[in-house]
Simulated assay, not measured.
Amino acid sequence: MSTTGENAPAAPEGVNLEEASSARIYDAYLGGTTNWAVDRYFADQAVKQFPLIKPLAMANRRFLGRVVRAALDNGITQFLDLGSGVPTVGNVHETVASHARADEGRVVYVDYEPVAAAHSDHILTEQDALDWAGIVQADLRDPVSVFEHETTQRLLDLSKPVCVLLVSVLHFVGGETDVDALVRQYHDEFAPGSWLALSHICNEDSDNEGAAQIARLAEQYKNTQNPAFLRTRADVERWFGGYSLLEPGIVHLADWRPDDEITEAEREAGPFMWCAVGEVPAT
C-alpha cells in the first residue's frame, strides 16, 4: 500500500506513515487533506464497520464550534485545545477570528504528533496568526510540559478564565493513565470562570446493533497508534467534579445548545458520544 496520497502534504520528519494515526483518521472523516493512504484505508474500513462515523465526527466538530462561540459570548477569549489534531474543518482559531475582535482571542493548540504540530504551525504562519495563536508539541498526559512551554506562557494568562477543550480526545487516553487524576490536574491550574468542554465516545444509550458496531470499531483502533476506550456517562460526570455543569448538562452532541446546522445523520449518530461543558466556580 502506498503511504503517501496524491493530495497529502509532505510528511514532516519523523512522522510514522506505516501505522494509522487517530488525528489523521479524524481529518479523513471530516474530508480534510492532512492524511495518508494508511489513514484513509482505516477510515474506509471504519465506515464499513460503523456507517455513522463520519456524521458523528462532523457532529463533534459542530459541538466544538458552538462551545467556542458560547465561550466568546460569555467573555472568555483564551482557549487551550488539548489533543487538537491536524488542521481541518472548523479550527478553534478560525472560529475565534470570525466571532471575536481581531485583538481579543488567544489560542494554544496542544498535540504530541509531529504532523499535527507541523501543519498547525504552517497554517498559523500562513494566516499571520502567530502573535495570538500557537502550537505546543507535547503530550496532554503531561500537564507540566504543556504549562511550562514558552508558547503557553506567552499566550495564556492563567489568572483569567480559559476555555479548556478536551473534545473527542480522552477516549484515546487510558491504559496506565489515571484519567480522573489527569483531568483534576488541569482543573487545578485554571481561574474561576474557566470552562472545560469535553466529548467522549460511548455506546450505552444506543440500540444493540449500533452499540456492537462502535465497540468493534474501538477494538479496531487498537491497531493504530492511538487505542480507543469506550466509557460511560458516569465517567464523564465524575470528570466534572469541581465544575458547575452548564445547561443543558451531560447530553449527546446534537442536544448541546443545538442550531439549525445539525443534520439528520448527525442526530442519528448522537447517542454514540457524550458531551458537556462545566465552569470552575468562584471560591
Score class of each variant (00 low, 15 high):
residue 7 N to A: 12
residue 76 I to T: 08
residue 157 D to P: 00
residue 228 A to M: 13
residue 68 V to H: 10
residue 142 D to C: 15
residue 185 Q to W: 07
residue 234 A to Q: 04
residue 153 Q to K: 02
residue 59 A to C: 01
residue 202 C to D: 05
residue 229 F to K: 04
residue 95 T to E: 13
residue 64 L to N: 09
residue 268 E to H: 13
residue 53 I to A: 06
residue 192 P to F: 05
residue 23 A to F: 00
residue 231 R to P: 11
residue 110 V to W: 01
residue 161 P to K: 06
residue 80 L to M: 08
residue 154 R to F: 03
residue 49 Q to D: 13
residue 86 V to R: 00
residue 83 G to A: 11
residue 165 L to H: 10
residue 39 D to F: 05
residue 209 E to C: 09
residue 191 A to Y: 05
residue 262 I to D: 10
residue 67 V to I: 14
residue 158 L to N: 05
residue 174 G to S: 04
residue 35 N to M: 11
residue 91 N to E: 15
residue 119 H to K: 00
residue 101 R to Y: 02
residue 178 D to I: 08
residue 250 I to N: 09
residue 203 N to S: 04
residue 95 T to H: 12
residue 257 R to E: 10
residue 72 L to F: 12
residue 187 H to R: 15
residue 277 V to D: 05
residue 254 A to L: 11
residue 85 G to Q: 09
residue 221 Y to P: 01
residue 6 E to F: 14
residue 282 A to H: 04
residue 156 L to I: 02
residue 178 D to H: 11
residue 249 G to T: 09
residue 106 R to M: 00
residue 35 N to R: 09
residue 161 P to N: 05
residue 98 S to K: 13
residue 112 Y to Q: 10
residue 216 R to G: 12
residue 258 P to E: 10
residue 88 T to Q: 12
residue 196 L to T: 03
residue 213 Q to V: 07
residue 58 M to V: 13
residue 201 I to T: 05
residue 17 L to N: 12
residue 257 R to W: 04
residue 274 W to L: 10
residue 116 A to C: 11
residue 174 G to K: 11
residue 220 Q to R: 06
residue 209 E to V: 01
residue 24 R to N: 04
residue 281 P to N: 09
residue 80 L to R: 04
residue 281 P to S: 01
residue 181 A to D: 09
residue 117 A to L: 03
residue 85 G to D: 07
residue 170 L to A: 13
residue 44 D to F: 05
residue 183 V to T: 07
residue 68 V to T: 05
residue 208 N to D: 15
residue 255 D to S: 15
